[in-house]
C-alpha cells in the first residue's frame, strides 16, 4: 500500500470521528437554543368549570350566571340553547341544569327537560320533569318552576311532591325565598293544601 494511501485512510478515519461529532453538536444546538413557545392567550376555561363539565356530562354550553340582590348565586346551563325568534335576550333550552346557592349555604339543584331563560324580566322558567335536589336532602318533583336571577326567589307553577328528612310531602305550590325578617335565612313555603306523612 503506497504512503499516499496512508494519508487518505487517515483522512477517512478523522472524518469518521469528526463528522458524527459535528452532527451531534448541530443537533443539540438546534434544541438548546430553540426559542420558548410564543406566550399564547390563556386557556379560556377556568379549572373548576372544566371539572364541573366533566362530571356533569354536559356540553360546554354557555352558563347563565348571576348574583341576586341578596347575595345568592344563580347558575343555569343547558345542553342545547336556541335564541327566541322574535324576542331578543330570551333563550329556549333543553336539558337544563340550574343551581341556586343561597346565602345560608343551601343549594338547590334543579334539572328539567325544557326551559326558557328570559333575561329581560330576569326570570327563567323550567318545565317538564322538573326535579329539585336540596342540600339537606329533599327531592322535590313538579312540572313547572320559575326561578328569578335578580332575587333569591323560586316558585313552582304546579303542585309538588317531595320526600326528605321530614318524610313525604305533597302540596299545591312551593315557594323558596329569603326570609324577609332575617335575610340570612331561606324559607320554603308550601301552600294550596299540604299533606305530610312523617315516619318517626
Amino acid at each position: 500500500m503506497s504512503t499516499h494511501g496512508n494519508t487518505y485512510s487517515r483522512l477517512v478515519v478523522a472524518a469518521k470521528i469528526l463528522l458524527p461529532l459535528g452532527a451531534i453538536g448541530l443537533m443539540s444546538t438546534l434544541f438548546l437554543l430553540a426559542r420558548t413557545p410564543p406566550e399564547g392567550e390563556a386557556l379560556r376555561f377556568a379549572d373548576d368549570s372544566v371539572s364541573e363539565l366533566a362530571d356533569q356530562q354536559r356540553l360546554g354550553s354557555p352558563v347563565h350566571a348571576s348574583v341576586t340582590a341578596d347575595g345568592a348565586e344563580v347558575k343555569i346551563t343547558a345542553k342545547a340553547l336556541l335564541p327566541d325568534e322574535d324576542l331578543p335576550r330570551v333563550t329556549h333550552g333543553t336539558d337544563l341544569f340550574a343551581e341556586l346557592l343561597t346565602q345560608d349555604a343551601q343549594t338547590y339543584e334543579i334539572t328539567s327537560r325544557t326551559g326558557v331563560m328570559d333575561d329581560i324580566n330576569m326570570v327563567s322558567r323550567l318545565t317538564e320533569d322538573v326535579l329539585i335536589l336540596t342540600s339537606d336532602g329533599y327531592r322535590i318533583r313538579t312540572d313547572a318552576l320559575e326561578l328569578r336571577s335578580d332575587l333569591t326567589y323560586m316558585r313552582t307553577l304546579t303542585p309538588i311532591s317531595a320526600d326528605g328528612p321530614l318524610g313525604t310531602l305533597d302540596a299545591g305550590r312551593m315557594e323558596v325565598f329569603t326570609d324577609p325578617e332575617d335575610d340570612t335565612r331561606t324559607r320554603m313555603l308550601f301552600t294550596g293544601g299540604v299533606r305530610l306523612v312523617y315516619i318517626p
Binding site: A171, D179, R185, T186, L189, G193, V194, R195
Partner: peptide, 10 residues
C-alpha cells in the same frame, strides 16, 4: 299532618 299551609325555616 294536613293543613292549608306549611312554612319551613330550615
Amino acid at each position: 299532618v294536613t293543613s292549608d299551609q306549611l312554612d319551613l325555616t330550615r
